[in-house]
């Protein structure tokens, strides 16, 4: 086995939560980040008694240092398992997603975050639900569930149903999909997840964003709807193909950036380093 491509992630903003972890938190407790001094009567913790501050104190109170504790957050993967996700050459998009989930399992366990999964196609898929677990092997379990599942046609209905479980909670959410469904209700979904830090993973296969090199006729069949369409591949259509991809990319960017989110595009192979960079840029 190759070394597991872990990646580094930190939430850029403070998050609530009582469980000690590695993300900046808003709760007080054992941490490195100094907040203030309070009277020992307000916070009876003699271990943190600050003698120098107490001597400087005019009223003669005994002061205790108060620190902010770093917290762990639940991490959820909201995975699109619709039929279109099983497309891809040589690796299907679901397999790419499974790679990502495996890496996430290791990374989350390393920083002490609980990892869970919700899946959807046209509806929520309760059979693929994994509650947030602090377990070393949960990433592999989720990956094997993803690679062995069969999806139906996808849609934003399923996404809405799945996301309702997470509405109003804190945490980190990876929304992994190829977004091959109407985007008009995506905004509403993101509003539901306003409390979380959402990372949209746009998983596209190189074959769909890059037309084949040779000219010719391509009879295409939609894996979800079964609709057929024949493309005569020639320089004109190739150009329009690229334009269509760019348009989609721009549309996604527009919807996400309106809510201060930057999507992360995966095409072909999941690269842990790129996702680390993504988080470093976000926290910087």
């Amino acid at each position: 086995m190759s070394t597991s491509p872990e990646f580094h992630y930190r939430l850029p903003h403070r998050s609530g939560g009582w469980r000690p972890g590695s993300h900046p938190g808003s709760s007080l407790g054992g941490g490195q980040e100094f907040v203030s001094h309070v009277s020992i009567f307000d916070r009876p913790d003699p271990r943190r008694l600050d003698l120098r501050a107490s001597l400087r104190e005019v009223r003669g109170d005994w002061l205790v240092r108060v620190h902010r504790q770093r917290v762990s957050v639940p991490v959820y993967v909201v995975a699109d398992v619709s039929a279109s996700m099983s497309f891809g050459l040589p690796k299907s998009k679901l397999h790419v997603l499974a790679d990502f989930v495996t890496a996430l399992g290791h990374s989350a366990f390393r920083v002490g975050d609980a990892l869970g999964m919700l899946a959807f196609d046209a509806r929520e898929r309760p059979d693929l639900f994994v509650p947030a677990l602090l377990s070393r092997g949960v990433g592999e379990v989720m990956a094997s569930m993803l690679t062995s599942c069969k999806g139906a046609a996808g849609g934003s209905d399923g996404l809405e149903q799945a996301v309702l479980h997470l509405a109003g909670r804190h945490g980190l959410i990876f929304l992994a999909s190829d977004f091959h469904w109407p985007l008009d209700r995506l905004g509403g979904v993101l509003d539901l997840l306003a409390h979380c830090y959402v990372v949209p993973l746009v998983v596209w296969d190189p074959a769909e964003i890059q037309p084949p090199r040779h000219d010719g006729l391509m009879p295409l069949r939609d894996v979800e709807s079964g609709r057929r369409s024949t493309q005569w591949l020639r320089p004109v259509t190739r150009e329009r193909w690229h334009e269509a991809v760019e348009r989609r990319r721009a549309e996604l960017n527009r919807i996400f950036s309106a809510r201060g989110i930057r999507p992360f595009f995966i095409s072909g192979e999941f690269a842990g380093e790129a996702l680390s960079n993504y988080f470093l840029e976000a926290t910087a």
């Binding site: 497309f87 091959h180 769909e208 989609r248």
Partner: peptide, 15 residues
């Protein structure tokens, strides 16, 4: 050829 979403491809009249 299977394709994830035909809808997002440009409409090619000749094809």
């Amino acid at each position: 050829l299977a394709f994830p979403s035909v809808a997002w491809l440009p409409r090619d009249r000749v094809g």
